[in-house]
Design a protein around this nucleic acid. Structure first.
Lengths: 226, 226
DNA sequence: TTTTCTTTTGACAGATTTTTGACATTCCCG
DNA sequence: CGGGAATGTCAAAAATCTGTCAAAAGAAAA
């Protein structure tokens, strides 16, 4: 198996050096880019994964992310400081796949990297993070954020959100939703879905002002992504 | 075999120079840092061992030690003038591996260094230490410290802590936890995990005031790292 | 063996979530 | 403008989950 190539884009030489050394110790091949131009150039070497700092001074990391996405389809993992949660959400909607906040542990980082590469390899399509506007849904931690505040959801509620959001802009009747989320053959829908949608909407509205889930009369529900 | 790199952190230039010369004579590559910042910077060069003076004026050597531990896992050897048992415990609880009191003989120092490097290399067993806030978990010695005091845990308790902490911020249901820690296929979880979590929380709370392990309702537990 | 400590188990109460059904409201269409 | 079907709302009931305790079973130490 070829050694996996990882591209590191960060303006802090100290950090990039440390990361490079560590990643190489873990058996990866690491390339360093200290600015956007270098980063774009190194795309030609076909990295398997990209670590991208989205808050480099004098450069728009988000734009860079989008540009990268136009050229390659490998996982992009953001490095970000805790403060600008908003940037993070932007980033994910700009084509990123996951994020990790600075300061982070090397072990944690390599674990994430391994997970993404594994997923990529198996062809698994499942994203780790979903976004919708300013809303952020972290599937692995099972948490929903609006900006920096977390919105609490119960298990079924979360599963329902996960289903609808990962099939955003598509309409499903209650029976299908029940089947997909509850797993049984939907015999008597009995209005459970209805009630859950209500509570999810209520909580979303309470925290964000909008409810995201839309009713298509006579048919079912859909997650509306602007 | 690569030449081993040793990082010396001490505010006394005379001493550091002397050490550097001596170590290089012994076939090591030596790097000097005269203050904490320099020390942190040089971590990017991945030293194989660190000599650290824990009593530099205007800086908390112990805290530095702990900070270093968050980034690297190589052996850390204290240089200290203090000799009490208490100081030793302090140092070790902050993530150090050994200590040597000043004034010392160069021979003694190099002997210790060689011993640690040998152990590090042979066992392949990394001196794994995890931290979470002020909490420190020494995996090789199977001990947990909060500041300078040790918190006692039994075998299973420690293993459970180890598993959750090394996968911090990720949620695992009881079944998975049982599988990972007990090693069997989780047939009848039977609440063993639940009970262990309770006792771990209780002891952590007793010593630290917080319980670190968080419940995600309907899903499982996770170690919460701020 | 006895003693002590750890681990497992089962029962229970309390808290939270999920489901249900009755009722109100909205929407479509004639 | 209604009638009827589909959807929204609410609160109570049912089901599920978690925290806690104490006792039993098992391991380790003495």
């Amino acid at each position: 198996m070829m050694r996996r190539k990882i591209l590191i884009v960060d303006d802090e030489p100290m950090l990039t050096d440390l990361l490079k050394a560590h990643l190489e110790e873990c058996g990866y091949e690491a390339m360093i880019a200290n600015d956007a131009d270098q980063g774009m150039n190194l795309l030609s070497r076909q990295p398997d994964l990209i670590l991208l700092d989205i808050q480099m001074p004098g450069m728009d990391g988000l734009q860079l992310c989008r540009t990268i996405r136009e050229h390659v389809s490998c996982p992009i993992l953001f490095l970000t400081a805790r403060v600008t949660e908003q940037d993070l959400i932007n980033g994910l909607s700009y084509g990123g796949d996951d994020y990790i906040t600075k300061p982070f542990r090397l072990n944690e980082l390599t674990a994430r990297i391994a997970a993404h590469l594994r997923r990529d390899e198996r062809g698994g399509q499942k994203q780790a993070i979903l976004t919708s506007g300013r809303l952020l849904v972290n599937l692995s931690e099972r948490k929903v954020f609006y900006g920096e505040t977390q919105i609490p959801f119960s298990r079924r509620e979360f599963e329902l959100i996960e289903f609808l959001l990962s099939n955003a802009n598509r309409v499903y009747d209650r029976e299908r939703i029940y089947e997909a989320v509850w797993g049984y053959d939907a015999e008597g829908d009995s209005g459970v879905v209805k009630e859950h949608v209500r509570r999810i909407r209520a909580r979303l509205r309470e925290y964000t002002g909008e409810s995201f889930i839309e009713t298509v009369w006579g048919v079912g529900y859909q997650w509306k992504r602007s």
